[in-house]
Amino acid sequence: MTQKEYIENIKNRQLNSDKEFILDSLTGAIDRLQKAFPRYGSFLMEFVQNADDAKSETLTIEILEDTVKITNNGNPFSEEDVKSICKVGRSSKTPKDYIGYLGVGFKAVFFISECPQIYSGGYQFKFDKSAWEDPEHTPWQIIPLWVDTPTVDIDNNKTNFILPIKTHDLLVKLREEVKPEHLNNRILLFLRNIKEIEIKDANQHLTRRFTKSEVSKTSDYEIYQIQEYENETLKTQDHWLIFRTICNVPPDVKNDYVTKEWEREIVEKREVLVAFKLDDENNLIKEKKALLILEFLVSYH
């Protein structure tokens, strides 16, 4: 079965479901789900997590005139990935091995886009609200449609997400979400694979790029250099001391009701990572925003 045939097969199976009860109920459930995400920029963190889970080393967020383009060089989409993204609350990932695994993260994108497109591993498809006569009663967010010709230039060697934004006001809000106070270089410290994130804004003629490189590593600690560039000019360069350890999940945590409800009871071990900022002489610097680092660690690991 070709990639196009696979997409068509999923679409037909979805449409052959009971329209009055199954499809209509799914439409309502997805609508409530996407409204549960707290911020307009929540979808950005989902793309960061998914890229890291796909073992990508780079992530690029490009804001065009009315579109956001996100690319990574991680593992390309497989049949299982396509199947998962066309479901609700079902993922090909497991909580033992990945940051994101609940199968709902991508749905955050529908808060800002009504026609997201995906190009990866030979798959090229979209979810398009305007393609349906009765989108209010059709779960268009999980019915894939094959795309013959991309609407913008894509890199066939990478995974590309093309997100036409609903309104100009949303685009303005997204520009706020990619500013340093919301998306800063410290995120690299707690990602397993991503070493570079680049944010391009064609309208503002602005490019922010932050990179992570290993300075030294022992059995006890690691030191990384985080650099941030603005339009290729180095703006900041910091060193961070990292301590990490693998901890067994306590039995009372594994057996806790909430843990089981969130399907975390199969997790046996978890990595704990703490970062300390260093000065030029490798002395510790007191950080006023240390709590924010802890919050990120708790939320995403």
Rank of each mutant, 00 (worst) to 15 (best):
Q124S: 15
D153Y: 14
S213C: 08
N9G: 06
E8T: 11
P250Y: 08
I30T: 03
V274L: 11
I154G: 02
Q227F: 05
T67D: 06
M45T: 07
L294K: 14
T60D: 04
V82M: 00
K200A: 07
M1I: 13
T138G: 03
R208V: 11
D52K: 00
Y257K: 13
N160S: 10
Q204N: 09
L292E: 11
Y6T: 06
T159V: 09
I63N: 00
L174S: 00
V68G: 02
Y257G: 11
R186Q: 15
V172N: 10
L59W: 00
N184K: 06
Y101G: 00
W146K: 05
R186T: 15
A131K: 15
C115M: 12
Q227G: 05
V258Q: 13
W262N: 07
K289G: 13
A131E: 07
N282T: 06
T27H: 04
E214N: 13
A275G: 05
S113D: 02
V68K: 01
P164E: 06
Q49D: 07
L291S: 11
E57P: 05
L183E: 02
F127H: 03
F21M: 12
F110P: 02
Q227L: 07
V215A: 11
L145I: 13
E133V: 08
A36H: 11
T71W: 04
S120V: 00
P95C: 04
G89Y: 14
N160G: 05
N160L: 03
E62K: 05
K69P: 02
E222D: 12
F276W: 04
K235E: 14
P135R: 02
G89N: 10
